[in-house]
Design a protein around this nucleic acid. Sequence first.
DNA 1: CATGACAGTGATACTAATACCGGTGCGCGA
DNA 2: TCGCGCACCGGTATTAGTATCACTGTCATG
Lengths: 91, 91
Amino acid sequence: MVRVPLTISERERGERLGRALRTARAGRSIVDVATQAGISPETLRKIERGRIPTPAFFTVVAVADVLGLSLDDLLAGLGADDAAEMATLGR
Amino acid sequence: MVRVPLTISERERGERLGRALRTARAGRSIVDVATQAGISPETLRKIERGRIPTPAFFTVVAVADVLGLSLDDLLAGLGADDAAEMATLGR
DNA sequence: CATGACAGTGATACTAATACCGGTGCGCGA
DNA sequence: TCGCGCACCGGTATTAGTATCACTGTCATG
């Protein structure tokens, strides 16, 4: 086995992350935020919609920064944020 | 153009992240920390050595959590952590 | 109604992340 | 010296992330 497909739990976690980001974006447009963060609008849209469940670390950092979000706060709002559970979830 | 290769700056940023994680790991073994974080030791080793410059968000979160690191603190120790620069760097 | 900005979708293309395997080298205790 | 554990590397295999493009739908405004 080499590079196991993402589990359902992992995808759901991605959706929660996406929702949190979208909520924080509030009124601003996707294009606006994505451009400021240095990523393409499509990518941000996919992250927000949960279609990219495990985005790159620095991508999330850039978006959170543009939105004025603290990463720690962002994570706290996701629930289920203790160590192994973050990476293992329903494996 | 479709999925541009990582720039040198991005790779260097990855190396800084890796060094920070390795420093925080202190005496513990890679195997120990990786197992607790729910990832393979190889992956953690590659991240620490900078051979995975942009690891997945939740992977970093899991490792930081095991090490008792705050993500915000971790980032602060990386330097060059403002918005667009995080994702754009030398693009 | 026409136009334009934004959101959403699906396809395509290419690189990156991750896991597993086999092998190497080092230090330490039996 | 012989294991043994740990770190490291290179290769292989597979999925995921990201960008670009080409649509469609909606809604406000001219």
